[in-house]
Design a protein around this nucleic acid. Structure first.
Length: 870
RNA sequence: GCCGGAGUGGCGGAAUUGGCAGACGCAAGGGACUUAAAAUCCCUCGGGGCUUGCUCCGUACGAGUUCGAGUCUCGUCUCCGGCACCA
């Protein structure tokens, strides 16, 4: 053993060892009865008939070129969990793969002329090496790469299955079109009417698009949210929010003079008596019919859904309020959305702020029909300043006057339904999922257009439809696939005549909506074979027990995966509804930033004594921001590994903060983690000779009567703490802190007898075992040094002995009226009466209590005595 | 605006069911070793007061409940994240 810890050497050594011993390869799936054994086996660790399974999954990366710190953190967390579960006897599936389709590859092709496939596969090779250099325990036999034909074949297969069921359909619709990316964006990909990727403005364009009918499962997806007990609350809230269910009523208003009905949707039927005008979306079918002045209409259209101001135009027609018979003017307004509800609203300016503002602008009447319950005083000024949007009591509402909003909603809805004026309706914000992309580097949609037969799906036996190679990447607005003759021209599967292929490819979120199921199958994917298969490994492994990834996927990826899981369930491929039992959304990796007034963001080494090295100007210390190239605050994992090794990098990224919270990177903190590993190295170096001699010593059980039992006690307390911290909510930072305490104790322990040396050895072995999931290489090395055979990861996780962990003496806090007065040492396990006795006998307490009246004494067992005085 | 989450030393962060506020780490200061430095080891490290042992104050702010509040309740402020003209 070398005296000095050299991470490079030992890390490569053990990575090679793990690879050669196939240590990370998942054991074969035990034989199953469909749905039966996995349940029956639970909690049966290592007994007859197999063990409990644990599926540990981290979000797979896009192969952009290099691993960054966000990946490091994500995968370090996952690796600790996987290794910990293995040591606890679970049958663990811990796979990794590549989310390999997507725009950057195509952009690289346009810019540098390198084919997307070449670019992607080279990146994958490099990043895979990086992941292995981190010492992550992936079973690469399960690897998936979404851009490979054997993977995307199943995208196409799923598409066909959905098409058969009517869950994939084509429709012409206005879609979001990004001029800069020259592609269609899903509603979810438009943020503040800008492209989610390039931030440029999005325009509306009419195109034929393929949609997946996620709304088929919408109610189930919403209800299912309440079952997601293992998910962070905020993610569940975001999912619900995105689905956006609202309950209301649709009502028909007759348009006066022409034979038309105007249907609106409202969630506030209690205010229907307060309607003073109607508003249509500019794109509403009636709009064109009613408006004569097309020029003015254009100007309203231009301002459609622009937040700045409300713009409207009188349509020259009136409707009749079916409840009052009142004549009400119709307007076209830019703020009314065609995509939601019916594209038309009833306007109640007294009780809706938007309607109020619009009414003020166009001088429309405001009719109050709701007053706050109880207080009538503050009403007056309200009428002139803002709408009263709360619920209250109805006034000026005929037969409904005097009712509470809540009751009136029901009564009026019922009235409307009974009179045939409309119906109670549920609305959702979530739309069907538009998956068509005018891009090359994605899954071809397996559809053929025939002049005689129309839309014809590719037959299953002809899958996969493979991306052609003879494609030019110009970056122009049309799909590159349109230029490939060989791809485009095809014979119709039905009539054999001339036909052409669909040239759009699928949204890459399709790829990631089922990859977690693909991992369950080793090699050659075949879902057809999995349908109602009684021995399916999918049934064994699904659902994912722990999913770990970034919060940025809180809505889209997770929602689509939940949708796909249900669709697969209904195809008979699996028998769960929710894919991810527990979800951990790790925080971002951040670092301080520097900004020069002239040179903008600076690298840390461009700052000397608070001044910019280029211009000498005073540098402003920027905020702590998420690591990004543009802010020049990134830390390169390669450089860290080179300097400190993978174990240190992993350890620090786990120690600096709990996983769900943001992590502030600190170069000094990394050195602290490195120091800690060096300290353990030094300890083992010191004890190595003795340890090798006495390999008979029990690892976890204590030997009573030791003088050094304090260290044994600390060891057992630490096993308990570390286990609890990991089990509770993966709070690795406190688990590592506990290990640091134990190491500090070992390091200051001076053994005098042989027994002492055995005690030290027990403490050291347990420390190594507990540290192993966090810092796998150094612990393997030291495990070997002290003479243990086999991998440390073939050892069981240590167990603590409650008796040995128990303190013999405790420090009793003595308070007077809740204020700390003194602390006394008493034997553990005293009764409340005895503890009280000891406290009152203490000389200092006696002195303080002198002459005071004791009202009562509160005893908290093993902790504290509080004396309440008068 | 609505929905989440957070606010604790110089810093990152700890504190079962309400029970010693500040674990662990970083930074800082002092000391040992050294020709010197690095590394390592030891000590100090929330603030105030003084008689250096004690004492008072202290978990964003203001109330409250309680023998006792970082933790529970109500109100206020600030920050972060998500959604947002969704009728």
């Amino acid at each position: 053993m070398q005296e000095k810890y050299s991470p490079q050497e030992i890390e490569l050594k053990w990575q090679k060892y793990w690879y050669e011993r196939k240590l990370h390869i998942t054991p074969p799936t035990p034989p199953l009865n469909k749905g039966g054994i996995s349940k029956g086996m639970s909690l049966n660790k290592g007994g007859q008939g197999g063990v409990e399974k644990f599926y540990c999954l981290e979000m797979f990366p896009y192969p952009s070129g290099k691993i960054h710190m966000g990946h490091v953190r994500n995968y370090a967390i996952g690796d600790v969990i996987a290794r910990y579960k293995k040591m606890n006897g679970f049958n663990v599936l811990h796979p990794m793969g590549w989310d390999a389709f997507g725009l950057p590859a195509e952009n690289a092709a346009i810019k540098h002329g390198v084919h997307p496939a070449k670019w992607t596969y080279e990146n994958i090779d490099y990043m895979k090496k990086q992941l292995n250099r981190m010492g992550l325990s992936y079973d690469w036999d399960k690897e998936v790469t979404t851009c490979s034909p054997e993977y995307y074949k199943w995208n196409q297969w799923f598409f066909l299955k959905l098409y058969e069921k009517g869950l994939a359909y084509k429709k012409a619709s206005f879609v979001n079109w990004c001029l800069s990316c020259a592609t269609v964006l899903a509603n979810e990909q438009v943020i503040d009417s800008k492209c989610w990727r390039c931030d440029s403005a999005v325009i509306q364009k009419e195109l034929e698009q393929w949609f997946l009918k996620i709304t088929h499962y919408i109610e189930e997806l919403l209800q299912g949210c309440d079952e997601l007990k293992g998910w962070p609350e905020r993610v569940v809230a975001m999912q619900k929010n995105w689905i956006g269910k609202s309950e209301g009523v649709e009502v028909d208003f007759l348009v006066e003079g022409i034979n038309e009905k105007l249907r609106i949707y409202t969630t506030r039927p209690d205010t229907i008596l307060g309607v003073t005008y109607m508003c249509l979306a500019p794109g509403h079918p009636l709009t064109e019919k009613l408006i004569e002045n097309k020029v003015k209409l254009e100007s309203v259209k231009e301002k459609y859904s622009k937040m700045e101001d409300k713009e409207g135009l009188f349509a020259g027609h009136y409707v009749i309020n079916p409840l009052t018979g009142e004549k009400i003017p119709i307007y076209v307004a830019n703020f009314v959305l065609m995509e939601y509800g019916t594209g038309a609203i009833m306007s109640v300016p007294a009780h809706d702020q938007r309607d109020f503002e619009f009414a003020k602008k166009y001088g429309l009447p405001i009719k109050e029909v709701i007053v706050p319950e109880g207080g009538a005083e503050e009403q007056k000024n309200r009428r002139t300043e803002e709408a009263f949007e709360d619920e209250g009591v109805l006034v000026n509402s005929g037969q409904f006057s005097g009712m509470k909003s809540e009751d009136a909603k029901k009564a009026i809805s019922k009235f409307i339904e009974e009179k045939g004026l409309g119906k109670i309706t549920v609305n959702y914000k979530l739309r069907d999922w538009g998956i068509s992309r005018q891009r090359y580097w994605g899954t071809p949609i397996p559809i053929i257009y025939c002049d005689t037969c129309g839309i014809v799906p590719v037959s299953e036996k002809d899958l996969p439809v493979i991306l052609p190679e003879d494609v030019k990447f110009t970056g122009k607005g049309v799909s590159p696939l349109l230029e490939s003759e060989a791809f485009l021209k095809v014979n119709c599967p039905k009539c054999g005549g001339n036909a052409r292929r669909e040239t759009d490819t699928m949204d890459t979120f399709v790829d990631s909506s089922w990859y977690f199921v693909a991992y369950c199958l080793k090699g050659g994917l075949d879902f057809k074979f999995q349908i109602s298969n009684l021995q399916s490994p999918i049934d064994y492994w699904m659902p994912v027990d722990q999913y770990i990834g970034g919060i940025e996927h809180a809505v889209l990826h997770l929602l689509y995966s939940r949708f796909f899981t249900r669709a697969m369930r209904d195809m008979g491929i699996l028998n769960v509804s929710e894919p991810f039992t527990n979800l951990l959304t790790q925080g971002m990796v951040c670092k301080e930033t520097w900004k020069c007034p002239e040179h903008d963001w600076l690298f840390p080494d461009e700052v000397k004594d608070g001044k910019c090295v280029h211009c000498g100007k005073e540098v402003e210390k920027g905020r702590v921001e998420k690591m990004s190239k543009s802010k020049k605050n990134v830390v390169d994992p390669n450089a860290l590994i080179e300097k400190y090794g993978a174990d240190t990098m992993r350890l620090f990224s786990l120690f600096a903060s709990p996983p769900e919270r943001d992590l502030e990177w600190s170069d000094k903190g990394v050195e602290g983690a490195y120091r800690f590993l060096n300290k353990i190295w030094g300890i083992v170096y010191k004890y190595r000779a003795e340890a090798q001699k006495s390999r008979s010593a029990e690892v976890t059980s204590g030997l009573p009567g030791f003088r050094a039992s304090a260290l044994i006690r600390k060891t057992h307390q630490t096993i308990k703490r570390v286990t609890d911290d990991i089990e509770k909510d993966y709070h690795f930072n406190t688990a590592i802190a506990a290990l640091m305490e134990l190491v500090n104790d070992i390091s200051s322990f001076v053994p005098e007898t042989d027994e002492d040396r055995t005690v030290a050895e027990i403490a050291i072995k347990n420390t190594l075992l507990m540290l192993a999931p966090f810092a796998p290489h150094i612990t393997e090395e030291l495990w070997e040094v002290i003479g243990c055979k086999n991998s440390i990861f073939e050892q069981p996780w240590p167990a603590w002995d409650e008796g040995l962990a128990k303190e013999e003496e405790i420090e009793l806090v003595v308070q007077e009226n809740g204020k700390l007065r003194t602390k006394i040492i008493i034997p553990a396990g005293l009764s409340d009466v005895e503890a009280k006795q000891k406290a009152l006998e203490d000389p200092k307490i006696k002195q303080i209590l002198n002459g005071k009246q004791i009202k009562k004494v509160i005893v908290v067992k093993g902790k504290l005595v509080n004396i309440v005085t008068g």
